[in-house]
């Protein structure tokens, strides 16, 4: 497994544990009422699971296992490493930006927080389009 794929998968595992930890705290909070913050993180927790865990794992495994470029097509067998790192950075920065600011936005909306939310969405969309661009040429028949 190449280093970029390992980073995607390890980051996905970290989000998996973090999201389940938050899920457990959210359930306990119904009973013990720890914090108001835990009542407004449900959307962020859902995105940690769907984007941070499942989507990131799918991206990492696809990057690792999809047919590689033929030498004459591209000297880099899995496509541009720089683009792959950029996808990783945009996806995770966007996701964490949302995770840290959305609960505070939901507790008391401020325009600058809403702007950060929009930026987080744009970063994740850039990551999605970047990944599609990176992997598209590798969706091909295997050579005999």
């Amino acid at each position: 497994m190449p280093p970029i794929a390992r980073t995607f998968v390890k980051a996905a595992f970290a989000y998996f544990v973090a999201a389940f930890l938050l899920g457990a705290l959210m359930m306990l909070d119904r009973w013990l009422s720890f914090s108001r913050w835990l009542k407004v993180i449900y959307l962020s927790q859902l995105h940690l699971l769907m984007v941070g865990w499942i989507t990131q794992l799918a991206i990492g495994v696809a990057y690792w296992m999809f047919p590689r470029f033929l030498k004459e097509q591209n000297p880099q067998p899995r496509g541009s490493d720089a683009l792959a790192w950029a996808v990783l950075a945009c996806l995770n920065f966007g996701l964490l930006l949302r995770f840290f600011f959305e609960p505070f936005y939901l507790m008391g909306p401020k325009p600058w927080m809403a702007a950060l939310m929009a930026l987080s969405g744009a970063l994740q969309a850039v990551a999605a389009l970047g990944f599609a661009w990176l992997i598209w040429g590798r969706i091909r028949a295997m050579e005999p």
């Binding site: 909306p109 325009p111 809403a114 929009a118 969405g121 994740q124 990551a127 389009l129 598209w136």
Partner: peptide, 22 residues
């Protein structure tokens, strides 16, 4: 390939939903 198109579309719709808050 269809799944990648939906990934792009879904992420752009998500961005639009967040921009709408701002």
């Amino acid at each position: 390939k269809a799944s990648l198109i939906y990934l792009g579309l879904g992420a752009m719709l998500g961005t639009l939903l967040l921009i709408n808050r701002w």
